[in-house]
């Protein structure tokens, strides 16, 4: 089963595709203007979607909004370093 972090990433990328943003946006791209380009309503929609799917989301539970995709994913668990083969 996918980790919550990977499941959240899939949900977010699917959402980005649906709202005509780049679903392949890099993890460190800013979420808002000059980056992924989410406006405030799209951010609110993503926040609600993540809460529906995972029971909590980093937009409504933190004092400050996350600024990158990676910061959103950190809410669902630490990144696992890819193992060198």
């Amino acid at each position: 089963m996918a980790s919550p972090r990977i499941a959240a990433e899939n949900v977010i990328r699917e959402f980005l595709g649906r709202i005509k943003k780049d679903p392949a946006s890099p993890l460190d791209a800013p979420l808002y203007a000059d980056g992924v380009g989410l406006d405030s309503l799209e951010t609110a929609e993503l926040s609600a979607l993540l809460e529906d799917e995972f029971g909590s989301d980093p937009f409504s539970s933190a004092d400050e909004l996350p600024q990158t995709l990676a910061e959103v994913l950190d809410h669902y668990g630490a990144a696992v370093e890819a193992e060198a083969v």
Binding site: L41, A44, S47
Partner: peptide
């Protein structure tokens, strides 16, 4: 932000009617 989230369906109807 929390109010916008709460009222997102209203604002989504406005976006559908008039654009972003």
């Amino acid at each position: 932000f929390l109010e916008l989230r709460e009222r997102r369906e209203e604002f989504a109807v406005l976006r559908a009617a008039f654009g972003a």
